[in-house]
Design a protein around this nucleic acid. Structure first.
Lengths: 252, 252
DNA sequence: CGGTTCATTGAAGCTCATCAAACCCCGTGG
DNA sequence: CCACGGGGTTTGATGAGCTTCAATGAACCG
């Protein structure tokens, strides 16, 4: 595998082989790269004309607020992921986007993006593919909250994050750095923070994985996979858009 | 509003004004219309090369099965909706699709669809818009299961179905015909069938709505909306994105 | 340093699942 | 025509899984 200068290129590069010119095009999208502090929303739910970004560094979540005051985190974004791609399409943002850490992101001009796709169909295809993977993750999240108990659900989330981070070189089967607080995990898992704490303790005591001090250590990968009924397939297709282009498989 | 011969045209017609030629093109997609019995899956989770359809009559659900034997219904499809559009893009179907009633659907050839979009960008944009609305519904579903209690969640689903049916002329604010069993509702809501029954009783006793004998009667629309924290916006945007502009092209 | 955020643990209670049983409607076949 | 059976609905009883409230400690930070 080629050494990639950005996580975005690393991610797309795992779906299709990227040529030198294509790599340059991807770099050019990062022209307007800026730094944003944690906690101040990048995109606001219900607002029109919201921007889109490519995330270069740091963690972000997209969430929806309820009238009752609760919030549900729909998805996390990690380096290499798009932010607010959907809100470009549908004009009004359905979710808010909040940086969970200090973040570096590149503001994307929708027209530039369209131009790049028009000139580089393979890149367009890869991005569409990535977007469709994101949708699959939302579905998997829905399934988890609807039909998995707290332990399975938490294990599943930790595995999914690990798989995604591994794809961009920020994690391995043995673990990864993870800046999420138990409150944030709770909002994603549909649980209370107190219960998340107990679940993490149980995962630790069972010797499956340890989440402490911003670090997830996976002690028993196979056991965790089995507990969570974790299925790689929804993250790890066979490069679906372009016939004849085989994507390298995610190291399981 | 024009009288539409198909629910599919009715749905798209509510986003953009359809010209006479465009209506004809839409009709042409229904060439291979066939009837399918309830209960036999149209699309199979995990299988490649699955077909896509436009649903003309009857109800369908898309669901995922878990190792433990449970199932989570991700979404319902009603007349005018696409089935399996995503599985055309990503080659492998992420969900199974099962008719809940006897169903009429038109098999869609992906290449025909691409041709139609290339020649009628406005139609392409409207379909993309509809697809993005479907995604928004999945997100709303996720939020409901994660953060709403059984009563709110059920009310929300009944309202959403009502809104969607109204769009294609199959319902009003006062109610609609609904062929779902309490078991099916349970699989969608992440509840047990027994509890769904109790929740429906409570909605009835509170004078909010009555679900009996395949019919949903909404007795207190505003009360139901308030209980469910129901927000039209995610179904009911300000029309499609690229009014009069080129539709983004699918790479394929 | 006092203030804030996060992690941790205990106790009490509510929401919902599970088990079990009865009932209804409806179609089918003796 | 009635017995039978099957799918769906309804209700009760019990308890698991989670939330909520409350309190404490650890880590960080202006």
């Amino acid at each position: 595998m080629v050494m990639h200068s950005s996580p975005f290129a690393a991610k797309l590069g795992s779906y299709i082989d990227l040529s030198e010119p294509e790599l340059l095009v991807l770099e050019s999208l990062h022209a307007r790269r800026k730094c944003y502090p944690a906690g101040r929303d990048l995109v606001l739910q219900g607002q029109p004309e919201q921007p889109a970004y490519i995330l270069a560094e740091g963690w972000v979540c997209s969430y929806r607020l309820l009238a009752g005051g609760g919030r549900q985190i729909v998805d996390f974004q990690i380096p290499g992921d798009f932010l607010g791609l959907r809100s470009v399409l549908s004009r009004t943002a359905g979710q808010s986007v909040e940086p969970l850490t200090k973040v570096q992101a590149s503001l994307i001009n929708p027209q530039d993006l369209m131009d790049v796709f028009a000139r580089n169909p393979r890149l367009g295809a890869a991005v569409l593919w990535a977007a469709s993977r994101d949708d699959a993750m939302v579905v998997e999240h829905l399934v988890g909250i609807g039909r998995r108990n707290a332990l399975e659900r938490t294990a599943h989330l930790l595995l999914e994050l690990g798989a995604r981070l591994t794809l961009v070189g920020l994690g391995t089967k043995a673990g990864y750095d993870c800046p999420l607080s138990q409150y944030v995990l709770a909002d994603a898992l549909g649980l209370s923070a107190v219960h998340v704490n107990r679940v993490l303790r149980e995962l630790r005591e069972e010797g499956l994985c340890t989440f402490r001090n911003g670090r997830v250590d996976i002690n028993d990968f196979d056991g965790l996979v089995q507990l969570a009924d974790f299925d790689h397939d929804y993250l790890d297709h066979d490069g679906p858009l372009y016939q004849g282009v085989q994507a390298p498989r995610f190291a399981a």
